[in-house]
């Protein structure tokens, strides 16, 4: 590969000629790799049109008033000011999203790791079965069954058991009462929280060289916790980083599941998340500028939490 930043080309009287040479060399390299770009073209076109462009458009529209009928009109920071200072429901959505993410993100991540770690010690057949069992909730779409469990009448499964045990006398309105909604939603989300990260951990643990543990035992590693801290975790860092992204992103993207479970909007906005707020303003009120400001805030929130956690994980064991 030609050195594009060769100092000879960067300064002095040859600068103009240098730039031309550099550009020509870049063009040559690109031409030489023509086939690579062709291979990447189909994916890239779709990716740019449906992922990159929409992110940029959302940021652009977030500074405008736009109702889909008239052309967008630039209004500066007004949308953000309205969102953060005047919209109480948005603040509620932000709090709910943060609460769910703070519980679900770390819990999903830790549970994924713990189950994978425990399962890894079992014989292969049992391991395969338990992997399937714990992963099945993210494959299965069984919110109808959860609705039966948490049904608000006395025939609801949990209510009927609690009543026949004498723990309660009247059915609890699990999916209609603002006080019980959040815990119920978190339980159901936790139930389905072993997903991509869980598989990544299962796989990562199986590839650790057993000699490492033997060497560790010789060097004075005495129990499973020391083994975990000194050998397993540092070896597994690539998986830890990948899984963190998967768990964090999933913990912010729970809106659909909540809608399937309790409907939209939820009673008293008890489990109203940023995604629901975006749905409300984008697809019901057609206030695109405002909805795009919500999308931009959600985007910044997801990306910054992810980046901070990545920064932190990169330092483990260094």
């Amino acid at each position: 590969m030609p050195r594009l930043n060769d100092p000879r080309y960067l300064s002095g009287p040859n600068r103009q000629a240098g730039r031309q040479t550099r550009l020509r060399r870049l063009a040559d390299t690109i031409r030489a790799n023509r086939s690579s770009y062709l291979f990447m073209a189909p994916f890239s076109v779709v990716f740019i049109i449906f992922t990159v462009l929409p992110v940029l458009m959302a940021i652009f529209y977030s500074f405008s008033y736009f109702n889909l009928l008239e052309a967008p009109r630039f209004i500066g920071w007004t949308n953000y000011r309205r969102l953060l200072l005047e919209d109480d429901v948005f603040i509620l959505a932000l709090t709910n999203t943060a609460l769910i993410a703070v519980v679900l993100g770390p819990a999903g991540y830790l549970l994924s790791f713990m189950f994978a770690w425990f399962i890894n010690e079992l014989p292969p057949k049992i391991r395969a079965f338990l992997t399937l069992l714990f992963y099945a909730p993210s494959l299965a779409n069984i919110y109808i069954i959860w609705q039966l469990f948490f049904s608000s009448d006395a025939y609801g499964i949990i209510n009927s058991y609690l009543i026949s045990l004498g723990a309660i006398f009247e059915p609890i309105r699990w999916l209609h009462d603002a006080r019980t909604l959040m815990p119920v939603v978190i339980i159901v989300l936790l139930w389905a929280s072993l997903s991509t990260s869980f598989l990544a951990f299962i796989a990562g643990l199986q590839t650790i060289d057993p000699a490492l543990f033997e060497a560790g035992a010789v060097d004075g590693v005495r129990n499973r916790w020391q083994e975990l801290w000194f050998i397993t975790l540092p070896t597994l860092r690539p998986q830890l980083m990948f899984s963190a992204i998967m768990s964090i992103t999933a913990s912010f993207a729970v809106g659909d599941t909540i809608t399937r479970l309790v409907g939209f909007p939820s009673p008293s906005y008890a489990v109203h998340t940023i995604m629901h707020h975006l749905q409300d303003y984008g697809y019901i009120r057609f206030d695109m500028g405002y909805a795009c400001a919500i999308a931009t805030i959600l985007f910044l929130l997801m990306v910054s939490v992810n980046e901070v956690v990545q920064m932190f994980l990169r330092r483990i064991g260094k």
Binding site: L53, P54, M57, A58, I245, T249, C292, A295
Partner: peptide, 20 residues
Amino acid sequence: IIVFSLMFTQTVTSLPAYQI
């Protein structure tokens, strides 16, 4: 960029994607 795009979901892009 691909790794970066793992960090957010389609919720963020859904409104402009509708227009596209």
